[in-house]
Computed example of a mutant assay.
Amino acid sequence: MTRAPNTHSLLADIGGTNTRVALAQGTTLLPDTIRRFRNKDFPGLESVLRRYLDEEGNPDCAGVCVAVAGPVRDGVAEMTNLSWIITKDALARAAQAETVAILNDLQAQGHALGHLSGDSLRPVVRGGDPTPHAAMLVIGVGTGFNCAPVYQTGAGRLVPPSEAGHANMPIRTADELALLHFVETAHGFPAVEDVLSGRGLERIHLWLSTRAGDPVEKGAAEIMAAAEAEDPLALETLRFFVRILGTVTGNLSLIHLPFGGVFLVGGVARAVAPWLERFDFAHGMSDKGRFAGFMQNFPVTVIEDDYAALTGCGHHLAHILPG
């Protein structure tokens, strides 16, 4: 297909496992251009983008914006769970684009809020009615874990980055302390991401089975399938996972005060969404002593749009493109 020059933007969402790439016109994502690539099949992002652009007829893009699962500093992104380093120069070279932006993936999700279809939003905790320009919070649970607050300012939307998944995991109970020591022995540091992620689900399952005297290693997908079949160990794994997710969500809500709502994103968040009510995520979130009532101010929604980060990239890029 022949595309007019400088009428499209190139967007990419780079996770720890897959990269999603698409074209957009202005802020409109073009669904028929969305492609997914397995990261392990490529030496770096530049080769992914070159393959994609070749398949799309090598359009001359006005801009490129990518969302990266890792910290971004001075135009350079280092993937947290993948050995790729991404620079603005490499992106400009691959896309032959004049305007280039690199966001943390949770920043991109933050820029997508308010631009997603209602049928992709799954309410899980009811809260107060959000006031105009109230802060929001995006929490990502997938290959890794992270969060980003979202502020609407007079100069536009501000979504500061963070690496919240690498803070210490919270401890409330003797069981949580035992899990901490299990994680610490294997990895040297008990981070939130070590339990609230796909591999975290696997680690909790291994810890519970080891404690029961019969260590069993299962992948996250296997654990979810076993839970659907009412396997007791898988169900206990999910119960523990949901409880810690509620605790961490409550902690982050107290830090950022997202009266505009908390939004859970990522493949693992979508997978556990049907279990949040059964295992009382809401209680885990609000179990804050004298602040339990105050926690009712923060509604929680799961975003079920797998391409929300691409939408966020499109809106951010449209804001910074000249003219």
Rank of each mutant, 00 (worst) to 15 (best):
L10V: 12
N146F: 03
L321E: 12
A112W: 05
W275R: 02
T99Q: 09
F263N: 03
N81C: 13
I14W: 08
H187N: 06
V100A: 03
G57S: 04
C65I: 05
T99E: 08
A227H: 06
E163K: 11
E304A: 06
D54E: 11
G44T: 02
A94D: 06
V66T: 04
R290S: 15
T143I: 00
V138W: 08
A77F: 04
H283P: 01
D74T: 00
G140M: 14
P5A: 03
R36Q: 11
R73M: 13
R211Y: 09
F37N: 00
P232S: 13
L49C: 12
V195Q: 02
D89T: 02
R157P: 06
S83P: 10
M79N: 05
G142C: 09
G16T: 03
T33E: 06
E56I: 01
F145M: 14
F42K: 13
V248W: 08
L238V: 09
Q109M: 12
T249Y: 05
L106A: 12
E56K: 03
A22L: 13
G57K: 05
P232G: 10
R93K: 09
V242M: 06
L10K: 11
L233Q: 15
T7D: 08
V48R: 10
T311E: 07
N297D: 11
E202Y: 04
T19D: 07
D305R: 06
Y52P: 11
P258E: 09
H256Q: 11
R203A: 14
P31C: 02
S83M: 07
V68H: 02
V150R: 07
A174I: 14
D74I: 00
A92S: 12
A318Y: 07
W207L: 05
D13C: 03
P170S: 09
I303R: 02
G289H: 03
G75D: 13
A178W: 11
A164P: 09
Q296F: 09
G118Y: 05
T131S: 13
D119G: 01
D280T: 00
R243M: 12
S9L: 08
G110F: 10
G57L: 10
L180R: 14
I139M: 13
D175T: 10
G16I: 02
R203E: 11
F298A: 10
D119S: 02
L235C: 15
G165E: 07
P190D: 04
A178D: 15
A112H: 05
S253G: 05
A273Q: 14
L30H: 01
E202V: 09
L121A: 04
G260I: 13
G44N: 14
S120K: 06
P43I: 05
D54G: 01
A148K: 03
G289A: 08
G200Y: 03
E176W: 03
L116K: 06
T87S: 10
F189N: 08
G200C: 06
G261P: 15
G260H: 14
N18R: 03
V183L: 15
I255F: 09
G260M: 15
C313P: 03
H115I: 07
T17L: 14
A97D: 00
P130W: 12
A155T: 06
K288Y: 09
L11Y: 11
I320G: 00
Q107A: 08
S197F: 04
Q107F: 04
C313H: 01
N168K: 02
M169N: 04
T247M: 11
F241W: 13
D32V: 07
R122S: 08
P322Y: 12
L82T: 05
T87C: 02
Q96Y: 00
G57W: 05
A155K: 10
F291E: 10
G154S: 13
